[in-house]
Amino acid sequence: MRSLIALRRHRPGRPSRRDPAPSRLAFRMQRLWLTPGFWRLLRVGLPLCLIVLPVTAYLADDGRRAAIGAAAGDLRRQIQERPEFMVTAVAVEGASAPVGRAVRALVEPALPASSFTLDLAALRATVAAVDAVATADLRIRPGGILQIEITERRPAILLRRAAGLEMLDATGHRVATLLDRAARPDLAVIAGAGARDAVPEALAVLAAAAPLAGRVRGLVRRGERRWDLVLDRGQRILLPAEAPEAAVARVIVLDAAADLFGRTVGDVDMRNGQRPTLRPLPAPSVAADPAGGEAGAPDNLQSLSATVVKVSQP
């Protein structure tokens, strides 16, 4: 037999071990040590226990917990309220004077405040809620200054309402109230229910009607779906809901070819693209004598209708 365990040399001085076998207790202890769970418990659980137990015992008292919380809060506040972190002034850029005043009046009550506690997102929402402000960028500049950079909305059109005139930007958002129409003669006027929602379309129609610019008085929204282009001398162009710009272009071509608006035409009805319709102008003299009007108007209108057919061919 070959032994796997090295032979234990017997030393003369010491008494030899009688029994190499481990006792039952030693055997069990060794097995316990070799149990992975027990080993892990001892290596992780015991140090954890040693750390957690005193801490828990210390924190078990309510007064100590409160004292620690108070001390921590105090320290935090001390750091936050150092003058380096305080915001005291507002600087508004990119805004006209009245808008700047309004923004300043909105923001200033929140100051002075620590830059840790200042809620820039909320302030920005407040500033952006001003009608004349398109976008607002807020940041804190070194030196404790709250810098507000504002892009204002540009008035693009006027909306006539019962209360008065309003300026709208190109997206239809309100900019400000206009007290005097003469103050902005460059802007066209729109009116009618639902006009506010269709400002981009109105701008497109007005752009298409640029050759008639001198005569355009404004646009009226009809039935919240289509526009009437109102000219002076009581003339109107009734535009379709779909592709009103194309209809305007057709009318302008017609006008150029046949001098449409030079005649006694009242409404030009383009609502049905297949069948443009002209309505005579209810002239006071003609209206007084329908028979005469019948006599006078026909060749006028007949030659025109021939032109209309010709124009609508291509």
């Binding site: 365990i5 076998a21 481990p22 055997f27 097995r31 070799l34 992975p36």
Partner: peptide
């Protein structure tokens, strides 16, 4: 039983497992 304990203990020690 003691002899078995001796052998098993030594083998467990070498294997480092129970």
């Amino acid at each position: 039983e003691r002899a078995i304990r001796t052998a098993v203990q030594a083998a467990q020690k070498m294997a480092q497992t129970r």
